[in-house]
């Protein structure tokens, strides 16, 4: 039986949303879905891992909305990207994960207001689905890279097959740091 450790097919680059230094020795990429409860739990895990690793870690988030299972996931992802276009990706990202039960379009608009976005521009971007292609691009890159559910993590471009908990994720990071 062969072991299968797929690698990222779309390299991390300037198109990505990143937290942490670009020259950090370890890059952690998450493919996630804002309506997935496992990703909701992983959100806290990533936060702890980032606190513990500090400047040694760069974190990247990409969208992998499972739209058939999660009817709000696609719009939520578009909302995060629309916020990203206004320089507020992470504010929206946090709000979405902290409010997974409330992801109706009206909720998204409220989060946009709370995040201090230009609401007119946000509304327009949501109505025209300005960032749907971008979300699809994330999704397709994930599909080609061996994303096998959400969340799926990659540590320095190699798929991480352990549990979405602090300890195993930390040790996977420490192994390559």
């Amino acid at each position: 039986m062969s072991t299968h450790s797929p690698r990222l097919t779309l390299p991390v680059g300037t198109r990505d949303h990143a937290l942490g230094p670009a020259d950090a020795p370890v890059t952690l990429v998450e493919y996630g879905d804002y309506e997935c409860p496992h990703c909701g739990r992983a959100h806290g895990v990533v936060r702890s891992v980032r606190q513990k690793t500090g400047d040694r870690l760069r974190f990247i988030y990409r969208n992998f909305p499972l739209s058939k299972a999660h009817p709000h996931a696609m719009h939520a992802a578009e909302a995060a990207e629309a916020a990203g276009a206004q320089g507020r990706f992470w504010e929206m990202h946090d709000k979405l994960f902290e409010n997974q039960q409330n992801l109706e379009d009206a909720d998204l608009l409220r989060y946009a207001q709370e995040a201090g976005l230009d609401v007119g521009r946000f509304t327009q971007d949501m109505e025209s689905h300005a960032f749907a292609d971008r979300v699809q691009e994330d999704f397709r890159s994930g599909m080609r890279s061996g994303v096998n559910g959400t969340p799926t993590f990659f540590v320095n471009d190699v798929r991480y097959n352990g549990g979405s908990r602090v300890e195993p994720l930390l040790s996977a990071i420490e192994r390559v740091a």
Binding site: C36, H38, L66, S67, K68, R140, G149, T150
Partner: peptide, 16 residues
């Protein structure tokens, strides 16, 4: 037991 299992994933990738 997980919400994003293998068959669920393939369901999403069906268009591809």
């Amino acid at each position: 037991p997980v919400c994003s299992d293998q068959m669920g994933l393939y369901n999403e990738i069906l268009p591809e």
